[in-house]
Structure formats: structure tokens, C-alpha cells
Design a protein around this nucleic acid. Structure first.
Length: 679
RNA sequence: GGCGGUGUAGCUCAGUAGGCCAGAGCAGCGGAAUCAUAAUCCGCGUGUCCGGGGUUCGAAUCCCUGCACCGCUACCA
């Protein structure tokens, strides 16, 4: 049989921050399990990844820190690479998008699409910051919305009315970085007319079997909206230069060059191996399979944009499956990089071994929906499953051999019916597990693996070798031999999920020759022989104590507390009395009050400010009903510029004390005429 | 308020071409055993499948509606 040829990719991690648990569960761990398994089964498979090192966020980050983008990406490339290695994510190549080979590959891609006439050149007017000396990306422009005249409009969308904007239409635009007023400058970019490919790509996706529902649905959503032209170039310095004379100072947009990173990383791998053309065997060979493992935020790029690019180029294989995972939550909350609410891989690895996390995460991979990781859960999986069930079985077996057979595999007698049945069931679990991995059902697969250990414990118990060793030594030898065989099978079964522990079992069995050379069929065929001297047994999984995880839990709680406090206190600054006196605070009596329809909190009130009536809007109706308000003496800011909220004019602001989720009105203690000054 | 998601045993989650008396792991309870990291093995769940309607011979699974929670978003001038 010809070897299956497969190339697997995991989303390129962005090089502006370390890896956390969510990334692992989404893209790296499942892919690694899959690759390890297929390799066991003899597939010709390569696992490709690398860091994504372009894009605006990195340049911003660099500016903030006063260093170059290169410094940032160098730093994170190193961190990523090391963490992945320590965690056992075993890429065949871990490249980076700042390498020459990537520049060449991306430029070739662009040129090909250009020459085939797929790219549209369009002139546009864009905002340019003279101080920063660059064109401003949409989200770095802020100004006043031309439609609702409100502040806070960003380059792409008005925060207030939700309208989609062209950044050049914004009134009083400001560069978000330096607050300089940008000028409008004409520029031009190349676009991929995605719409032209819509029918083709849609039919292609619908023809796919075995794709996850979340991926299909997500794409259908995009098709409903209709695909539009998408710019593939940017006016930036940091990135892959557009390879055209007329495009000086322009680079490829990061989403264009990032997926090409899969290809350039494969090329780099081929060169490193001294077979520079071999990358084509995976990318341009119709018999080879291509699988992308990603998080759900990346679906559109891998299931729509990148395939369209590949289609446009021609010659390349399209992905056979895009395996997208949902998100992993942490202690019931969303992981947040910016708030530092996350478990960082490098940090984890400085305290715990990799396999327990690989195990715990695999049991809760967000395959069909968001799932939740907690330290308590992690501890429980480790202690009551890895240590108690799996580790304990191996330990009781090996200890028994050490004590009673001097660490030598006993010669078994004839297998009885039960022995044969047990073995049969063990192999069934093993096969099931494999089949499930092929279907990308990793959670089910690891459950099957644990079933092997569960059944093994039962067998040990039922056979009572500690008794038969006295009354029926042959039965005992057979039992123990079989337990050793199961231990050996376990080394194979857990390999894809927990490679480090697999290696340890092999070592204890003195089967080191298989280390990193496991092959499913051959390994299963080479049974243990009586008389084989085993290695020294040791504890496979140590228990994780409360004291080990409590600091981790505390740390996360601390992060939450911190971020709450931060929001509360935006650093009060001292002002003088004159400044305060500018604020005209007055007592006002509420005459009428009613809810503003279709809002959660807005209350419209008519108040008497001493001189007359005025209308005031306030967001208090979660705490106060209209009836509560009528007749109350409240305090308002009387000299505030009028504003329009939800189309209703508000002439003044009502004062209230605000805490996290409660709100208390400021009123006056005695009856005092409306219009009295508050100071 | 808008968009999207979720709501199944104490916990984490399975479970759609609608149909065996609704499941797994862990936790818990009772018992057995003592080789083993006080580990293991056996036994034990009448769960309003969020509520209410409807379609159907039959729905956790389809439709409508309500509620709750989560995320994004708007509003909280």
C-alpha cells in the first residue's frame, strides 16, 4: 500500500505575546495528536507552523516600547519555539514570516495573481498622518461621525450610530497615536475580488464531507452577506514589499502573507532536509491531504480567503479539512490576553510537567462548543485519572514484578478464555481510539485510552495475583505477563496524547529502542518475551496538591481584582476651585419621567430648574422607575452643552453615585427651592 | 435594545437523517479487596433534558414563544 501523504498546519501564532491554554486547545494540541498518530500508523506526514510576524499591532507594540518590530518578533519567536518544544508540540518545521524564503514565496504568489489578472487596482483616498509619516489603519483614526455628528467614530465604523464609514469622511479626524490631524492623501491598492469566487468556493465547501458544522455554518454566514473586494496591500513599512515597481513603500496585507507562511515554512523544511523540491510533494500533489487546525476566529481565512488565493494561483491543493475549535474559557471566564487573564504556557511549564496539561486539555477540547478549564479540574484529572487509574495500574504491575519476579518478565502459561477476552477488548479500545483520532474526535479518543487502563485494573483485581502467586504460580505468571503486555500497549496508546509519559513507560519496560521510533503494527507484533529484564519502576504521575494550584488560582483572581480597580480609578487629577466653579450644579425638581423606549437604562425627565422646565435624559432606569422619580429633588449639571441621545435632546446631566452595579441618586437633604446652587 | 452563542445528573461534558426504559468521566454513597501513589474493584442516579405552547403515533433532538446566562455591540450624554 502506498503511504498516505499528509501535511498538517496549525495557525501561525502571532508574534506579539506568548502562547496560552486557549491557543493550545484550539490549534496546536489537537494537530499534534493527529500528526503523532498518523505517523505511528506509517503515514508520510509533516507538521508545519511558524510565527506570524507582520501586521500593524506588532509595529504599534514596538513603538510603545521604543524598540524595533524585529526585536519584538525575535523575542516571541524564541519563546514560542521553546514552549512548543517543551510541551511536546513537535513541528517538522517552525518557521517565521520574516525569512527571505517567505518574502519570495509571498511575492511570487502576489505576482502570479497579478499576472493572471485576478487583482484589481483601485485608487482610494486615505488618511495620512504627517507626524507619524504613515497612512492610518482604520482603527487608528478617530473623529466625529458625519451622520450623527458624534465623537468617537473610528475609521471603519461609528461607535454611536453603528454606520459603516469611510475613514476619509470622518469629521475632525485625529491620529490615535499622536493626535495629529491627518491629511487626506490619494493612494492605491490591489484587491482580490472575492465575490467573483463566491459561487465556486461555496460549492467547494458544500461538497466537503466530514467538515465540522461550525466551519460550514460560519462560511454560509459570510456567503449570505456576500463576499466583497478585499485589499491585499497596505501602505506600511513593516511587511513583505509588494513586488511591483509602481508599489514602492507598500507591503502585502498580513492576512495575505500569513497563510502563505504555511507554504514557505514547508519550503524551508525541504531545504533543511537537503531535498529542496520536496515541498511540492505535499502542496502540489493531488494525492496529498492538507489539514488546517485553527481556532474559530480564523475560519474565514482558512476556509474562504486562503482557498480562493490557492484557486487563483492554481497548481496548489486546497485544504481537505479545516478543523476549527471553539474557545476555551478559564475558570468560567473568557481568556483575555490584554488583561493578562490567562495561563501562559511558558509559565505553566516552569511549574508542572507537560503531559498532565496535555491530558486535561484533551478531555475538554472545545470541539463542539466553548468549554471551561479550571485549575481544580486540572488537578482532578491528574490525580484521579492519570495518577490513580493509569499510573497506578502500571505501578502496581511493575512493583509486583520487581518484588516477586526480580524485575524479569515471567513466562506465561496458556491464556484462558478470560485472558483472551481481556486482550481482545484492550485492542478494541486501542483501535477505537485510533479511529476517533482520524475523525478528529480527540475527546472520545482519549476516553477510550483510559478505558484500557480501567479494564486493566479490573483484570488485575479479578485475577488476584497476590493470592495466586501462592496457590497457582502459573496462573499468576500469566496474569502478570498479560498486565505487562497491557502496560506495553498503553505506551503506544498514550503516545499521541502524552508522548513524554509514553517514553517513560518504555523506559520502565526497558524497551528504549522504540523511543521516538514507535510504529503501530511492528510494535504490537513484537510481544514481550519471558525472561526480558525490565527497567526500574518509578511513579509516572505525581499527585498535584492543593498547595500547588492555589497560587495559580489566586493569581487569576488577582488579575480580575486588578482590572476591576483599574476601571474604577482613572487617576484623579487635582483641579483648582475656579475650575470646579465652572460647573453649574443646581437643584431641580422632577416633574415628569418616562422610559425611553427600546433602551435598557434611559429615562426621559422633565425637571424644574428654578427658571423653567428642561428635559434631561439619564441612564438610571435599572434602579429607578419613572414613578420613583417624579417629585424628587435632584442635582443636575445645569450648564452642560445639550446633547442628543437616541435622538432625544438632553439639557443637563443628573448626578448619581455609581458603584459596580448599583447606582444611587444624589438628592438634597431638606426641601430647598428648585434652582438652588450646589457647591 | 441589536447580533451571535449557550442552557442535559453535584462538576466537566456527549447525545440532530426525531423512536431501544436519556448517557460518559469525575465527584458522592454502600460494600469487597489489600499487589499498588489510602490507589483499585463491585453496586447505587424517579435527572421538570431551562419554562410554555405546537407539529408528530412518538422530540432533549423540528417550529413558535418566554426566561436565564455568556460574548460582541449600542446606550449609560
Amino acid at each position: 500500500m502506498r503511504k498516505e501523504k499528509i501535511i498538517v498546519t496549525s495557525a501561525l501564532p502571532y508574534a506579539n505575546g506568548p502562547i496560552h491554554l486557549g491557543h493550545l486547545a484550539g490549534a496546536y494540541l489537537p494537530a499534534d495528536i493527529f500528526v503523532r498518530y498518523k505517523r505511528l500508523r506509517g503515514a508520510d506526514i509533516i507538521y508545519i507552523c511558524g510565527t506570524d510576524e507582520h501586521g500593524v499591532p506588532i509595529t504599534i507594540e514596538a513603538e510603545k516600547k521604543g524598540i524595533s518590530p524585529k526585536d519584538i518578533v525575535d523575542k516571541y519567536y524564541k519563546i514560542h519555539k521553546e514552549s512548543f518544544e517543551k510541551f511536546g508540540i513537535k513541528f517538522d518545521n517552525f518557521s517565521r514570516t520574516t525569512l527571505k524564503i517567505h518574502y519570495e514565496t509571498s511575492q511570487d504568489f502576489f505576482l502570479k495573481l497579478y499576472e493572471k489578472g485576478f487583482l484589481k487596482k483601485k485608487r482610494t483616498k486615505q488618511l495620512y498622518c504627517p507626524k507619524c509619516k504613515r497612512f492610518l489603519a482604520d482603527r487608528f483614526v478617530e473623529g466625529i461621525c458625519p451622520y450623527c455628528k458624534k465623537k468617537g467614530a473610528r475609521g471603519d465604523q461609528c461607535e454611536n450610530c453603528g454606520k459603516w464609514l469611510e475613514q476619509t469622511k470622518i469629521l475632525e479626524p485625529k491620529c490615535k497615536i499622536c493626535l495629529t490631524t491627518p491629511i487626506i492623501k490619494e493612494t492605491y491598492h490591489w484587491y482580490i475580488p472575492l465575490g467573483n469566487f463566491q459561487e465556486k468556493i461555496k460549492n467547494w465547501i458544500l461538497s466537503k464531507k466530514g467538515w465540522r458544522e461550525n466551519v460550514i455554518n460560519f462560511c454560509l454566514g459570510w456567503f449570505n452577506e456576500g463576499l466583497e473586494d478585499r485589499a491585499v496591500t497596505r501602505d506600511l513599512e513593516w511587511g513583505v514589499p509588494v513586488p511591483l515597481e509602481e508599489a514602492k513603500g507598500k507591503v502585502l496585507y498580513v492576512w495575505f502573507d500569513a497563510p502563505i507562511g504555511y507554504i514557505s515554512s514547508t519550503k524551508e523544511w525541504a531545504i533543511k532536509n537537503g531535498t529542496p523540491d520536496r515541498w511540492k510533494e505535499y502542496w502540489k500533489n493531488p494525492d496529498a491531504k492538507l489539514y488546517h487546525f485553527i481556532g474559530k476566529d480564523n475560519i474565514v481565512f482558512h476556509a474562504i480567503f486562503f482557498p480562493i488565493m490557492l484557486m487563483g494561483y492554481g497548481e496548489f491543493n486546497l485544504p481537505d479539512n479545516v478543523i476549527a475549535n471553539e474557545f476555551l474559557n478559564l475558570e468560567g471566564q473568557k481568556i483575555s490576553t490584554s488583561r493578562n487573564f490567562a495561563v501562559w504556557l511558558d509559565d505553566y511549564l516552569s511549574k508542572f510537567p507537560p503531559d498532565p496539561l496535555r491530558y486535561a486539555l484533551t478531555t475538554i477540547l472545545p470541539e463542539t462548543r466553548d468549554t471551561d478549564f479550571s485549575w481544580k479540574y486540572f488537578q482532578e484529572r491528574n490525580n484521579s485519572e492519570l495518577a490513580d487509574i493509569l499510573g497506578n495500574f502500571i505501578n502496581r504491575t511493575l512493583s509486583f514484578v520487581k518484588v516477586n519476579y526480580d524485575g524479569v518478565v515471567p513466562l506465561p502459561g496458556e491464556f484462558n478464555e478470560n485472558d483472551r477476552e481481556i486482550l481482545d477488548r484492550i485492542y478494541t479500545f486501542l483501535d477505537n481510539s485510533g479511529r476517533m483520532i482520524e475523525n478528529f474526535e480527540f475527546r472520545k479518543a482519549i476516553l477510550e485510552v483510559m478505558n484500557i487502563a480501567r479494564l486493566a485494573n479490573k483484570y488485575f483485581n479479578d485475577e488476584q495475583p497476590w493470592k495466586t502467586i501462592k496457590g497457582n504460580p502459573e496462573r499468576c505468571r500469566t496474569t502478570i505477563y498479560l498486565c505487562l503486555e497491557i502496560t506495553r500497549v498503553l505506551a503506544l496508546a498514550i503516545y499521541s496524547f502524552m508522548p513524554f509519559s509514553s517514553g517513560k513507560i518504555l523506559k520502565m519496560l526497558n524497551l528504549d529502542k522504540w523511543k521516538d521510533k514507535l510504529n503501530w503494527t511492528e510494535f504490537l507484533n513484537e510481544k514481550l518475551r519471558g525472561g526480558h529484564k525490565l527497567g526500574e519502576p518509578f511513579i509516572l504521575f505525581k499527585k498535584i496538591e492543593d498547595k500547588d494550584i492555589i497560587p495559580e488560582i489566586k493569581k487569576l483572581e488577582g488579575v480580575l481584582d486588578m482590572s476591576e480597580k483599574k476601571e474604577e480609578k482613572p487617576e484623579p487629577e487635582l483641579i483648582d476651585i475656579n475650575e470646579f466653579m465652572k460647573v453649574d450644579l443646581r437643584v431641580a425638581r422632577v416633574l415628569k419621567a418616562e422610559r425611553v423606549p427600546k433602551t435598557d437604562k434611559l429615562l426621559k425627565m422633565e425637571v424644574d430648574d428654578g427658571k423653567g422646565k428642561r428635559q434631561v435624559i439619564a441612564g438610571i432606569s435599572e434602579q429607578y422607575s419613572p414613578e420613583d422619580m417624579v417629585g424628587k429633588n435632584i442635582v443636575i449639571v445645569a450648564n452642560l452643552k445639550p446633547a442628543t441621545i437616541r435622538g432625544i435632546q438632553s439639557n443637563g446631566m443628573l448626578l448619581a453615585a455609581v458603584s459596580d452595579d448599583d447606582l444611587s441618586l444624589i438628592t438634597v437633604e431638606k426641601d430647598i427651592p428648585a434652582g438652588s446652587r450646589v457647591r
